[in-house]
Design a protein around this nucleic acid. Structure first.
Lengths: 222, 222
DNA sequence: ATTATCTATAGATCTATAGATAATGC
DNA sequence: ATTATCTATAGATCTATAGATAATGC
């Protein structure tokens, strides 16, 4: 009998049928995401994941080699979903600074919806074996790269004041991380701000324009 | 014999001598910080902490009731140190916008030096029992409050354009979190920026002034 | 007597696997 | 025969405590 393991998405499996691997792993990931969000990675047992996914602990280990494998699959799935939504948000946005404001608005709303998933990445990336941790971190930067493109275009077209490459890159990191900030300070921020407040104020703070109309608001002076 | 536990810093101990408690707990915290940074909270054993602190596992449990107690003591110590450095940095700064730039500069340098400690808070706060998690999170916000004061004064004195309270508060959160960003994206940012670059560019991005001279730089146009 | 410390281990997991069983197709 | 699944458990921890010992002062 053939016992050689297959490699799918860089994670080893003993199951031959690739479609089955994909289907079962989706079950594993769905179950694990929920449990990890609720109890954290370390306090979730592989047995709980197997139960929630609807099969036995023995079967679970046919589809992954270790518990860390599951965490990696979870992080990867979350990144896929983030990247998908953000790409779509950016492609739908208009031209010019107004379009940037729309894109930021959409991005912040994606962060708002994926709150728990983003938190999970922040908290558990460190629990991955270093080779995979690197991969997950690079994914984070990849999303920042999407904003770098938008900003670079606006800077080149004159819609934004000309900015050095390094300024553009850091501004893109700021946008990305201020979206994350809503998730990891939400327990506090939500006392004072709705997500709409948050988007409006942030947009005015760093673009100086209104997030919906795209126009500079009248200056209030002391 | 008196077996009633004492409460010191809200953590129970069986030891009567308060000075001894303080001394031993400092040993425990110093040992634990290092181990937690290296391996994470869950992968560090209480036995390793006891060994590194220089006494037995039995003694360790005379000074704390549980492993979570140790994590709380660690988080609290880190907060104390952060708050101390930031308060000092703010009090040393000049008046006006230039003083704000100096304060931000000092704050970012504190984040730079306390890199690993800040990361630890981000990663392990979730592992605390909820009552203590709340306390640690409030500590984070307390540091933001220090910047709220500075910004409010500048806004009132006219050194900064007048800003609504909600704008001030969010701007303070932004400053705090962008300091943290340097720690959790440093693995990437440090490829392109020194901490000095980072401070200069961030200051110009959100104050529009040079971080050292406190003056508006000449505008570069495309 | 009282306090602090240590040794030894109970008790409770939890991951990962071995080996049996069921299902499917030649 | 081959593939997928399950049950049962080996083996390896790890936290927290009980009970013994050492040190200190009345």
């Amino acid at each position: 009998m053939d016992h050689s393991p297959r490699r799918t998405k860089d994670v080893l499996t003993l199951i031959k049928n690739p479609d089955l691997v994909e289907r079962r792993r989706r079950q594993i990931v769905d179950a694990a995401v929920e449990l990890f969000i609720e109890k954290g990675f370390h306090k979730t047992t592989t047995r709980q994941i197997a139960n929630a996914a609807g099969f036995s602990i023995g079967s679970l280990y046919e589809y992954v080699k270790s518990k860390e494998d599951i965490l990696y699959l979870v992080c990867d799935a979350i990144h896929e979903e983030m990247a998908h939504h953000v790409t779509e948000a950016l492609s739908r946005a208009d031209e010019g600074v107004k379009g940037l404001a729309e894109a930021i608005r959409e991005y912040f709303l994606v962060c708002h919806r994926m709150n728990d998933h983003i938190l999970l990445i922040y908290q558990e990336t460190q629990s991955l074996p270093s080779q995979w941790r690197k991969r997950v971190l690079e994914n984070e930067v990849q999303i920042t790269g999407l904003f770098v493109n938008v900003l670079a275009n606006l800077s080149a077209s004159g819609d934004l004041p000309f900015m050095d490459e390094k300024y553009i890159e850091l501004a893109a990191h700021n946008i990305t991380v201020l979206g994350h900030m809503w998730t990891f300070r939400r327990w506090f921020l939500a006392r004072h701000y709705s997500i709409e407040d948050y988007i409006n104020i942030q947009t005015r703070l760093f673009l100086g324009i209104d997030s919906l109309t795209g126009t500079a608001p009248p200056k209030e002076e002391a």
